[in-house]
């Protein structure tokens, strides 16, 4: 049943103008960077900034809009013999998958036709992975918000605030903490803080890929000892998965018991 819902869902979303625009945005940008910069690692590094800002914002806004707009459609489907949990996963994957495909496709295709070395492919792969994770995480948050608040102005407003919080404000707080407690051993608390922000987590995973030599400098030992180990990597990935699971599960529970 999930597959049936997903099939039509994908057909619908893949034909929409905004998903095509979204894919073309990444394709165009990556292509231009290739034409200006040349080598693949540089392109991936430049795309990193874009990915960390655009993907959370786009995913959370599109996610909230999408769910608000399909409200009547969801009601209509629920009058048919469709189970709520099936419909939820159909709707979630129905938006998440096209967004992931549009992003990874948009970024990867120029790497194929411009040609890139193995190092650039690793970088691009890491970029695609992090971007995809951030996409589903923020679609999950958006779904939770849209199901929690029937008032769409409230839901969209909150989505924007959450996005702003994670992209900007949270890092400001971290910097403040670093300054206020400069005389204490801060490595572990700050590392722990970074686990509570999916964008920071994604950023650090990418930093380790791209700016390793810079990070190996002053704080190098800390990062290497933590993210360099299997345990550290597992914790980082586990945190990302938790970030994926918690909002999606919250949305899922809401969807099961919601009055439409």
């Amino acid at each position: 049943m999930i597959a049936k819902i997903l099939k039509y869902q994908l057909r619908d979303v893949m034909r929409s103008k905004w998903i095509i625009a979204y894919a073309l945005f990444f394709l165009g940008l990556t292509d231009i960077l290739f034409r200006f910069g040349g080598d693949g690692v540089r392109v991936a590094t430049s795309m990193m900034n874009v990915v960390l800002i655009v993907i959370p914002l786009a995913s959370i806004i599109l996610g909230a809009f999408y769910l608000y707009n399909t409200r009547e459609y969801i009601e209509m489907l629920l009058c048919h013999p469709v189970k709520r949990h099936q419909l939820f996963w159909g709707m979630f994957l129905g938006l998440g998958l096209p967004l992931v495909l549009a992003f990874t496709g948009g970024v990867m295709v120029p790497f194929i036709y411009h040609g890139a070395g193995p190092e650039a492919w690793t970088a691009a792969g890491m970029l695609a992975f992090t971007g995809s994770m951030l996409t589903v995480i923020f679609v999950g948050i958006a779904y939770y918000l849209a199901l929690r608040f029937d008032d769409r102005i409230k839901g969209l407003g909150l989505a924007l605030v959450i996005c702003l919080f994670f992209t900007v404000i949270y890092d400001g707080i971290i910097l403040l903490v670093i300054y206020m407690f400069a005389n204490y051993p801060l490595e572990k608390p700050v590392l722990a803080l970074s686990l509570f922000n999916p964008i920071d987590l994604g950023r650090i995973l990418l930093l380790l890929q791209f700016d390793i030599s810079a990070l190996m400098g002053l704080t190098g030992a800390v990062f290497r000892d933590f993210f360099g180990t299997v345990l550290g990597m597992a914790i980082a990935l586990g945190s990302l998965l938790l970030w994926l699971f918690v909002p999606v599960y919250g949305g899922f529970r809401r969807f099961l018991y919601k009055d439409f």
Binding site: N49, I53, V168, D171, V190, S194, D200, R203, L207
Partner: peptide, 20 residues
């Protein structure tokens, strides 16, 4: 300069906040 004084701040490299 922030990093020179507080090496831990390096973990904010490429953060939107830092760019601002």
């Amino acid at each position: 300069l922030i990093v020179e004084r507080n090496p831990m701040a390096l973990m904010l490299l490429r953060s939107m906040f830092v760019q601002i």
